[in-house]
């Protein structure tokens, strides 16, 4: 009897996962350490398995009877699976703050309150729904060799001046995200535009130098290392910092006018049938032990209010409904068309 139920369940779940049409990049199961396999925690994430694995292993050391199924997808796939298809996951981890905010605002996250979640700084959580567990600066990265003897741009105004003064050096050799294809790129661009008018001037000047557009940070950094581009604007600092760089060809600049801090957030899905287990994972993620693992083993900087106080130029992207403005399709369409006319100049 039990076998039949199990088989039926397996078949159904296979069918169901096919129906979700979730564009899975990677899926891996971490079997329970004590082999019991009584409970399974399903995590849907945008963070690569290799990066996040230490956190899962540390969690399992504490909870040896828990099997963890870790599924990686793109930010838009993660959002779509939860928002439109009601996929059955317990915890959703994503770097797309705007889409996570939209999920929480639309009631797809369960509320959870504990000493750990309440201990988070105000800017690192939204109500009892979204919990930031890593803070990553959005930086400008330079090719060290190309910038030998050139004054380093410390602000966006410096960047504009540099582009105007040395168009020959930079033409075709500036890289940035294409917000049309990259969710992170869209978030960074819209937040820049929200923060300061300098962004549009910078975009127009950059657009005059035919920038290369990328979908991911790593592709941008590869080209930067190999010298195909010399300047990458709006790159996730954690990728630049943890990338193997034996000849120190990369030079990371945190713009001093403002440097946005991206929060990687976790939420407990409304569809979760084991919210206690999901809550235990969130608590672990936010605990000093979990944060230490995040900081030292994943290369993602842990939440630190102290670090923010030390750098007055660091501005966390505000985790509030303001993020929803640019998720609106009309606003998105308008922003992208403006961006296209500024950067692509057509």
């Amino acid at each position: 009897m039990r076998g039949i139920v199990l088989a039926l369940g397996l078949i159904l779940s296979t069918v169901a996962s096919a129906l979700w049409a979730l564009d899975i990049e990677e899926e891996r199961s971490f079997p329970a350490l004590d082999g019991s396999g009584d409970s399974e925690l399903a995590i849907l994430s945008t963070t690569d398995t290799v990066v996040f694995a230490p956190v899962i292993v540390a969690f399992q050391t504490r909870n040896p009877s828990v099997t963890v199924r870790y599924t990686v997808a793109s930010t838009t796939s993660v959002f779509g699976a939860i928002h439109n298809e009601g996929a059955a996951f317990d915890v959703v981890v994503s770097s797309a703050m705007d889409l996570q905010m939209k999920l929480a605002n639309d009631g797809l996250a369960q509320g959870y309150r504990s000493d750990r979640t309440l201990a988070l700084p105000e800017w690192a959580r939204w109500r009892d729904r979204l919990f930031g567990f890593a803070q990553e600066p959005v930086v400008t990265v330079l090719n060290r060799a190309a910038f030998a003897g050139v004054p380093l741009p410390r602000t966006r105004a410096d960047l504009i001046r540099l582009m105007r003064d040395r168009p020959d050096m930079l033409r075709g050799r500036i890289g940035t995200y294409d917000p049309n294809v990259s969710g992170a790129g869209y978030l960074f661009a819209t937040q820049d535009a929200r923060q300061s008018d300098t962004y549009w001037r910078l975009s127009e000047v950059m657009g005059g130098l035919s920038p290369r557009l990328y979908a991911t940070s790593s592709a941008m950094l590869s080209d930067l290392k190999e010298g195909r581009i010399v300047l990458a604007y709006n790159v996730l600092g954690s990728y630049a910092a943890t990338r193997p760089d034996p000849d120190e060809s990369l030079l990371i600049v945190e713009p001093e006018d403002f440097t946005h801090i991206l929060l990687r957030t976790a939420l407990i899905a409304r569809a979760s049938e084991q919210p206690e287990l999901a809550a235990a994972f969130v608590d672990f993620l936010l605990s000093p032990e979990g944060q230490a693992v995040v900081d030292t083993e994943t290369g993602l900087p842990a939440i630190s209010a102290q670090h923010l106080r030390a750098g007055p130029h660091l501005r966390p992207i505000r985790l509030d409904p303001g993020l929803l403005v640019f998720v609106d399709p009309l606003m998105r369409q308008r922003f992208l068309s403006e961006w296209s006319s500024a950067v692509l100049q057509r």
């Binding site: 929480a104 605002n105 639309d106 009631g107 939204w126 109500r127 505000r318 509030d320 409904p321 303001g322 929803l324 403005v325 609106d328 009309l330």
Partner: peptide, 13 residues
Amino acid sequence: LGSIGEDRVFYRI
């Protein structure tokens, strides 16, 4: 929308 903070917001045009 930013000033609303802790509340969920919805809109329709």
